[in-house]
């Protein structure tokens, strides 16, 4: 019956040989990256579950206590821990660069049209998305356990905690390009905890000795912590806090950029 001898072939349609738009940055790539992050139990445990548990353990017993302006102390603790959650989240994504360099994935990517800048952009956006989720989870736990705030305070403290965590996305990338190690977060985790301590996220800085309190003002978490809590305490944002945030963000971003250039030039 069949007389045709023609064999179906995959005809060579001249493929579109232009480099990709935006250097390879695309929603599809971002989506796979996010799914991968959200599947990582370790990341979720440290960024979403641990800060929420901290709130239940250290925040809830303070129920009934009030800040000088009459707001609940639990809200103060919730915002502080939201900052902590966001900074762990953004750092871990940035630092994942270290793992990917150690595994040789960055080298594999260099055989694709993905531009190194687009790769960093994907990491930064992923970091900020995870940071946002971390803040939302912490706030949800707070709201579910009785924290009540006016809508504008929820919004402004949340935005402060989230946007301020950009400094740690830069910090993570800096660390990621500094150490090509698969388990870099094991070293960074404790450092973040110490920084969070100095930033007044675990205990108010007022309880620290004077010397430590003065040193604390120059550590990288201080600025974001103060800024995120300002709408809640009504203290207003100090120049020192703002300067702290800006200087550290610029320093980490410059450091990351420098290392990133060294890495991509090392052909």
């Amino acid at each position: 019956m069949t007389t045709s001898l023609s064999v179906p072939t995959t005809d060579r349609v001249a493929p579109d040989r232009r480099p990709p738009a935006l250097g390879g940055f695309s929603p599809a790539v971002l989506g796979i990256e996010l799914r991968r992050v959200l599947r990582n139990r370790r990341t979720l445990a440290f960024t979403l579950i641990m800060p929420a548990v901290f709130f239940l353990i250290f925040g809830l017993p303070q129920r009934g206590q009030q800040l000088p302006n009459g707001r609940a102390v639990t809200a103060y603790i919730m915002v502080s821990l939201a900052v902590y959650a966001a900074m762990v989240a953004t750092t871990s994504i940035g630092a994942a660069v270290a793992t990917e360099r150690a595994l040789g994935w960055s080298r594999q990517l260099r055989l694709t049209p993905l531009r190194p800048a687009a790769y960093v952009a994907i990491k930064a956006v992923t970091a900020m998305v995870l940071g946002l989720i971390a803040v939302c989870v912490e706030f949800a736990v707070g709201a579910a356990t009785g924290v009540r705030l006016p809508a504008d305070v929820w919004l402004s403290t949340g935005l402060g905690a989230w946007l301020g965590s950009l400094v740690f996305a830069a910090f993570g990338l800096f660390v990621g390009y500094l150490f090509p190690a698969e388990n870099v977060m094991q070293f960074i985790g404790p450092i973040l905890a110490v920084l969070a301590m100095f930033g007044g996220l675990f205990v108010p800085l007022d309880v620290l000795p004077d010397v430590l309190r003065d040193v604390a003002r120059f550590t990288p978490v201080y600025g974001v912590g103060e800024i995120a809590r300002a709408p809640l305490t009504g203290d207003g944002v100090s120049v020192a806090a703002l300067a702290n945030l800006v200087v550290w963000t610029v320093l980490f971003a410059l450091g990351a950029t420098r290392l990133f250039r060294r890495d991509t030039a090392r052909v």
Partner: peptide
Amino acid sequence: VARGRVAAVLQTGGLLK
């Protein structure tokens, strides 16, 4: 590489586990 005209299979590593 940017135009996808060359592709390679390298010896080791290079995959996300």
